[in-house]
C-alpha cells in the first residue's frame, strides 16, 4: 500500500491494465462463480505481474496478505460482498440458507425467523451455525 501510493502514475497504469485485462478476458468468467473472486484474481495477477516486471524485489518479502489488503479498501466492497454472498448462499441447502437469510441478512430475531419459516427455534440456531460454517469453508476454499 505504502509502496504503491508513492507512485500514483503506476497505480493509474495498473488500474487501466486490470480493466483492460478484465475486458479482454471476460469470456473466462463463469456465471456460477462469484464475480468478486474473478475480478480479484485478475487484479491480483496484474499486480503481481507489475511488481515482478518492475523488479521490486522486496515485494516478495511481504506476504500476499498485504496485497489482499489493497483490495479491501474498495468503497463498493459491501455491494460486491452482498452479490457474492447470495451466490454462495444459493449453494447451501434450504434448511441452512433460510435461517441465515432471516437472522443475518434481514435482521430478524430467532423467534421471528422461526415463525416466518415454520421451523423450530433450535432448528434456526443449528441452521445458522452449520450454514455459516459451510460458508466459511467455501470462502476459504476448503
Amino acid at each position: 500500500m505504502r509502496r504503491l501510493s508513492a507512485m500514483p502514475d503506476d497505480v493509474e497504469d495498473l488500474v487501466q491494465e486490470s480493466l483492460l485485462a478484465i475486458h479482454n478476458k471476460r469470456h473466462t468468467y463463469n456465471r456460477t462463480q462469484p464475480l468478486g473472486a474473478w475480478v480479484h484474481a485478475i487484479a491480483k495477477y496484474k499486480l503481481v505481474d507489475f511488481l515482478r516486471g518492475r523488479g521490486i524485489r522486496e515485494s516478495f518479502n511481504d506476504s500476499l496478505e498485504d496485497i489482499g489488503e489493497l483490495f479491501a479498501y474498495s468503497n463498493v466492497e459491501a455491494a460486491e460482498a452482498r452479490r457474492d454472498i447470495m451466490k454462495l448462499l444459493d449453494q447451501l441447502p434450504e434448511k441452512h440458507r433460510m435461517p441465515i437469510i432471516y437472522t443475518k441478512l434481514e435482521g430478524l430475531s430467532v423467534e421471528e425467523a422461526a415463525d416466518k419459516s415454520g421451523m423450530s427455534e433450535s432448528a434456526i440456531k443449528v441452521g445458522v451455525h452449520r450454514g455459516l460454517k459451510k460458508l466459511s469453508a467455501m470462502v476459504s476454499g476448503k
Binding site: 478476458k25 473466462t28 463463469n30 462463480q33 473472486a37 475480478v39 484474481a41 476454499g141
Partner: peptide, 9 residues
C-alpha cells in the same frame, strides 16, 4: 487453472 478465481479444490 485457466479461469481466474476458480478454486482448484
Amino acid at each position: 487453472l485457466s479461469q481466474p478465481g476458480v478454486r482448484v479444490g
